[in-house]
Design a protein around this nucleic acid. Structure first.
Lengths: 333, 333
DNA sequence: AAAATTCAGTAAAACGCTTGCATTGCCTTT
DNA sequence: AAAGGCAATGCAAGCGTTTTACTGAATTTT
C-alpha cells in the first residue's frame, strides 16, 4: 500500500467543489458558505489531507519561516535569547531555522545566503559584530532583519538591546564605590562595538566621575569561555586588580573558580560582577552579582518586532532598548 | 528602483540557453559543455541570481531541511546535542528547523505536524518519552526519524544513545564500593522509559550484585532544574542517603549547592555522580563526577544516521549505542 | 420589476524550478 | 557514405498551492 500524497485537488473532487474553494476554507477566507465549509472540512478530515507548505510558499511568496543566526546554541546567553525567539515565533505561527555561526564571518555569510535562498520571511541575527559583508547581504535582499542582543552602531536594521553603556557604568561605579582602586574590565574582542565602544565607554565614564585614571592594562580581551576565565584570574592578580567586570557569565565563573582555586576570598579580597545573569550565576558559591539583562525578553521582543516588520506594520522605533538592573549577589560586598 | 526577483528564466535568456541547461549547471549536472557552463556561470554572477529553494523544493520534492524537536534549547544537555546535529547537518548541506516542545505532548504533536507540512526531509526527535500520538504521527508519514539521546523501547525508528543501564549500574557500583550504604537515585519522571526502565534497572542490578536491598524511598522523581536539586538535598538527608546519582546536571548542581549551603562536606559526607557531563560539571567546586556521555557526538551521529536514511542508503543498525565513561572528579571519593 | 450589490463558487494563470523525453549535431564504425 | 552512438541541449509537463478575474445566483435597493 504505497502512501499516495493527497492534494488539494483530491479534496476538491471528493467535496465537489473547486480547488479554490478548498484553499479558501483552509485559509479561513470568509467567502465560503458554512455548509460548503463543513463539507470540505469533513473531506479534509476523512482524507487526512495536510496542505503542502512548500507549494504554499511558492504560490504565496511567504514561508512562515524565519532564519535565526546564532553564534553557538550551547552558550546560555544565546540559547536564552533563542528560547524567547522561538516562543514568540510559535505564537505567531512561524518556525525557526537555526544556524550556528561561531561568529565566523565566512560561515555567517554563507548561512545567510542559504537562508535567503530558502526565502525566509525574516531574519534574526545574533553576534557581536555586524561586518560589512553581512551588512551587504542584508541590504541585497529586502527581507526584514532584527538584531537580538547585538548592536548595529549605524542603526540600519532593527535591534533589541539593553543600554550597555549605562549598565557597565553602573557596575563599575558600584565596584569603585565599595573601595576598589583597580577595577578590571574583561570582555570579548574590543573590535566588537559592544565591547570597544559601549562597554568601554561606560567603564571610562564611571572612572571619570570617580576621578580615577584610566589604565589600559586593566582591560582584557577574552574568549567567552570558562577556561579563559580560569586562566585570566592570574593575570588579574598580576596587574593588581581587586575587582572585575566580566562580559560573559562563563568567563566570570572561570574567574571565580580561578580565585577560589588560589584561595582568594570572594568577595572579601576580590569582587566580580558579570553581565548576563544566566542560570549559571545562581549556581556558583558565592553566587555572582550580575547585570540583569532580560535575556528571554530580548529574544521575545526581537521576534515580536520582526513579526511587525514582516507584516509591514508601522514601527514606532526599530531600535528598542530594554531596562536592566544590577542584581546583587555574593560576589560583591 | 523596485528590486525585481530574478529567475532562472532571466539567466537562460541572457545566456542564450534553455532553463534546463541553467538548472543543470546550478545543480552540478555533468552533462554540460565546459564552455556553456562558464557562460552560464558568468551570467549568474552578473545578474546576482540566487535559486529559489522553495521552488526547487516543490519541483524536486526535497527541501534539504530537517526538523529538530527539542524539549528546551536552554538546557545544556539538549543544546549540546543540537550543536552536534547542526554541525553535521551543515556538513551535508541541510538546514535545521528547531522547535522547542517542553516535553509537552500536545506541543510535540502540533509542531511535528507543521514540520511535516513543511516537507522536511527528515526528523530528529529529542525528549524522554515517545508517546503513542507521536508515534502515530511518525508512521503517518514516510519521513525518516531518528531519536537523539532518547529511547524507543520498541525500536521502531532510528536512535542514538549510550547504554543507560550499564552507565547507571557502573555509577551505582562505584558509590556502593566507596562505602555508601544508602545510595539515592534522582531522575526525572519514572514514566519515562529512560528512567523507569533503564536507569532504574541499572541501579537495581548494581544493588543486587552488592547484595544491598532495594529501598524505594531512595528513588526520587524531579524536574531537571537547579531549584529542584536545591530542594531535594533536604529530602535526601531525611531518608539517610549519603550519595546520589542525578539524572541531570542542573539537578546535580542544585543538590551540591544544597549540601554546601547546609555545611555538608562533599565528597566527604556526601557523594554525587551526575549523568550528562555538560560544562556545568566543571564549573562547580568541587567539580562533579559524571557519567561521560558524548553529547555532541550523540547529536552528530544521529544526524549522520538521518542523512543515510534520507539518502535511502543501507543502514546496518539503526539503533546505535555510543560508549561512555565515568569521569571521576571532586564530588566522589 | 429592473438595477445594483453582495455572495459563492469556478477556471485558469501564475509561482520558479526539476526532470523525463526528444532532438540535434558531431564522431566513430564498418 | 550510411548507420549508430553519444554528448549536449531544448521542450514542456509537472510539483501543489494561491490568487485574479469572472460568472451566476441570491439578495437588496429603488
Amino acid at each position: 500500500m504505497e502512501k499516495q500524497t493527497i492534494t488539494i485537488y483530491d479534496v476538491a473532487r471528493e467535496a465537489n467543489v473547486s480547488m479554490a474553494t478548498v484553499s479558501r476554507v483552509v485559509n479561513g477566507n470568509p467567502n465560503v458558505k458554512p455548509a460548503t465549509r463543513k463539507k470540505v472540512l469533513e473531506v479534509i478530515e476523512r482524507l487526512d489531507y495536510r496542505p503542502n507548505a512548500v507549494a504554499r510558499g511558492l504560490a504565496s511568496k511567504k514561508t512562515t519561516t524565519v532564519g535565526v543566526i546564532i553564534p553557538d546554541v550551547t552558550n546560555m546567553f544565546f540559547s536564552s535569547l533563542a528560547r524567547g525567539i522561538d516562543d514568540v515565533a510559535t505564537m505567531y505561527k512561524y518556525n525557526i531555522i537555526l544556524a550556528n555561526s561561531d561568529e565566523n564571518n565566512q560561515k555567517e555569510v554563507s548561512v545567510l545566503s542559504t537562508l535567503l535562498a530558502k526565502q525566509v520571511d525574516g531574519l534574526i541575527f545574533m553576534g557581536h559584530e555586524l561586518t560589512d559583508s553581512i551588512r551587504a547581504e542584508f541590504s541585497r535582499s529586502k527581507t526584514p532583519v532584527v538584531l537580538a542582543g547585538s548592536i548595529d552602531p549605524d542603526e540600519q536594521v532593527g535591534s533589541v538591546n539593553i543600554d550597555y553603556v549605562a549598565a557597565v557604568e553602573e557596575a563599575t561605579h558600584q565596584l569603585l564605590e565599595s573601595g576598589n582602586k583597580r577595577v578590571a574590565l574583561a570582555t570579548g574582542s574590543l573590535t566588537h562595538p559592544i565591547n570597544g565602544q559601549f562597554r568601554l565607554k561606560g567603564y571610562k565614564q564611571a572612572l571619570e566621575k570617580a576621578s580615577v585614571a584610566y589604565d589600559e592594562s586593566l582591560i582584557f580581551e577574552n574568549e567567552p569561555s570558562y577556561q579563559a576565565g580560569l586562566a585570566l584570574f592570574g593575570k588579574l592578580q598580576k596587574v593588581g586588580a581587586t575587582a572585575v567586570i566580566a562580559g560573559d557569565d562563563e568567563l566570570a565563573v572561570g574567574i571565580l573558580d580561578g580565585a577560589l582555586d588560589k584561595g582568594v576570598k570572594v568577595p572579601d579580597d576580590f569582587e566580580i560582577i558579570t553581565s548576563n545573569n544566566t542560570k549559571l550565576t545562581e549556581m556558583t558559591r558565592p553566587q555572582l552579582t550580575s547585570i540583569d539583562q532580560p535575556l528571554y525578553d530580548i529574544g521575545a521582543v526581537a521576534m515580536r518586532l520582526l513579526t511587525k516588520m514582516m507584516n509591514k506594520e508601522e514601527i514606532e522605533e526599530k531600535t528598542v532598548m530594554l531596562g536592566f538592573d544590577i542584581l546583587k549577589r555574593g560576589s560583591t560586598k
